[in-house]
Amino acid sequence: MARMGRPTVEVVLTDEERETLLRWPRRATSSQALALRCRTVLACADGGSNTALVAELGIHPVTVAKRRKRFAADRLQGLSDEPRPGPPRTVGDEKMEEVVVRTLETTPRNATHWSTRDMAAASGLSQSTVSRIWRTFGLKPHLVDTFKLSRDPQFIEKVRDVVGLYLDPPERAIVLCVGEKSQIQALDRSAPVLPMMPGRPERRTHDYLRGGVTTLFAALNAATGEVISSLHRGHRAVEFKKFLAKLGKEVPDHLDVHLTCDNYAAHRTPAIQKWLPAHPRFHMHFTPTSSSWLNQVERWFALLTDKQIRRGVHRNVQALEKDIRAWIADWNDNPRPFVWTKTADEIFERLTGYLNRIKDSGH
């Protein structure tokens, strides 16, 4: 009895085509769709029937037949996506360039930055078209970021010193990133907090009652992420000296102690300058002025603020300090160090890029 139905298109590969079809699915940049097409063509060339490939690859029989036909006609080029149907573009490259240039180099007459409505009115395009152009080129006029350039005359030397500690720490030594988070307020809301519910976020009153302040001294181990901390009601040289003494007790005697600190006045008082020579294993390394981002403990302070302090409710300082100590103890049960990756030269190169974008930077 004669076999009914359409004849199966035979797939025969050259050695070069087979090698290419085996290589493409292994590339990190290849899509899953392309990888599946390659496997389908290879299976067809190995003599697999459409029915067998449906069970093996989990695709529709029509898809298998389509892949056979397209490969037989267009070979490897037939594996790429065909142009999708749709209307032609109505906004040309010149018009898109005009919108991008106007967004980057001008501002509207009555505002400090463009909105999609203002740009649509100025360019004659629709608001949705302007929005698509901005998304394509990554333009967000409504957003603004902040930065500050250090004017420290020893900026280069200090950056190399601190970054060198992170990337190549000295032997038989510990690197501690030291800082103070001062004026942590114990805040209690004037009414009970309303808990989160489906479709409604947590709600709290905008006003609060002050219950006092405390200061957290912290030293982050750059290698392990562990934190040595101490809470005080003040943040003078007296409290900093006590914290240094605590570090001396907790760090093993056979290790030198390298401290990265900011330029807070309490770190340079005569009392501290007198204490350091009496404890020669302590070495102070100062970050440049206006460069707190170099001190890794500041990143840890940001985590503490975000996860415990900012939304915390505390009636008094004692309750605040109890929660801070509990959070630090939980952190030290599973410490996570911050891995520093930027070299000093990479930092200077990035800074040069900022300076080149600032008119009359003087640098």
Rank of each mutant, 00 (worst) to 15 (best):
247 L>S: 02
319 A>E: 07
44 C>V: 06
149 L>D: 00
274 K>I: 02
10 E>R: 14
279 H>S: 05
230 S>I: 00
121 A>V: 02
207 D>W: 14
70 R>F: 14
326 A>P: 03
261 C>E: 06
142 H>A: 09
259 L>V: 11
14 T>P: 08
155 F>S: 03
183 Q>K: 12
305 T>N: 09
45 A>Q: 01
50 N>H: 08
60 H>K: 15
80 S>G: 12
212 G>R: 02
126 S>K: 05
165 L>D: 00
36 L>F: 14
138 G>S: 09
342 K>E: 13
248 G>H: 15
7 P>I: 03
16 E>F: 14
294 L>V: 06
98 E>Q: 11
13 L>G: 11
100 V>Y: 08
72 A>Y: 10
203 R>T: 09
170 P>L: 06
163 V>H: 09
350 R>F: 12
186 A>K: 05
347 I>R: 12
261 C>M: 15
160 R>K: 15
156 I>H: 14
80 S>E: 09
66 K>L: 13
6 R>W: 13
299 R>Y: 12
277 P>Y: 14
9 V>I: 14
135 R>H: 14
60 H>T: 06
354 Y>W: 10
344 A>E: 00
140 K>W: 13
15 D>N: 07
307 K>Q: 10
171 E>T: 09
359 K>P: 10
47 G>K: 09
355 L>P: 03
170 P>Q: 01
151 R>D: 08
267 H>L: 09
25 P>C: 06
47 G>I: 03
339 V>K: 10
232 H>S: 04
269 T>D: 01
13 L>E: 07
198 P>F: 12
155 F>G: 01
189 R>P: 04
256 D>I: 02
225 G>I: 00
348 F>I: 00
189 R>I: 01
81 D>E: 15
155 F>A: 05
280 P>F: 13
222 A>K: 00
146 T>P: 00
346 E>H: 09
176 L>F: 04
5 G>W: 08
38 C>N: 11
240 F>A: 05
96 M>H: 07
15 D>L: 07
305 T>Q: 08
362 G>E: 03
352 T>R: 05
57 L>D: 06
215 T>A: 12
20 T>R: 11
330 D>C: 00
54 V>P: 01
259 L>P: 03
169 P>T: 10
116 T>N: 11
37 R>E: 09
338 F>N: 01
233 R>N: 10
286 F>D: 00
348 F>D: 00
264 Y>Q: 05
9 V>A: 04
175 V>F: 13
269 T>V: 07
48 G>D: 05
329 A>K: 04
144 V>Y: 13
17 E>G: 04
80 S>W: 15
129 T>K: 11
254 H>I: 08
26 R>K: 15
318 Q>F: 14
33 A>W: 14
282 F>M: 04
172 R>K: 15
235 H>A: 09
53 L>E: 02
302 A>K: 03
73 A>Y: 15
80 S>I: 11
37 R>H: 15
128 S>M: 10
78 G>F: 15
22 L>G: 03
89 R>Q: 12
201 P>I: 03
298 E>Q: 01
118 D>C: 04
228 I>P: 01
256 D>V: 07
206 H>E: 11
220 L>K: 05
59 I>P: 02
172 R>I: 04
73 A>E: 13
6 R>S: 09
46 D>C: 06
25 P>T: 09
220 L>H: 11
71 F>A: 07
165 L>A: 07
250 E>G: 01
131 S>P: 02
267 H>G: 11
272 I>N: 08
306 D>R: 12
140 K>I: 02
26 R>Y: 13
20 T>V: 07
356 N>G: 06
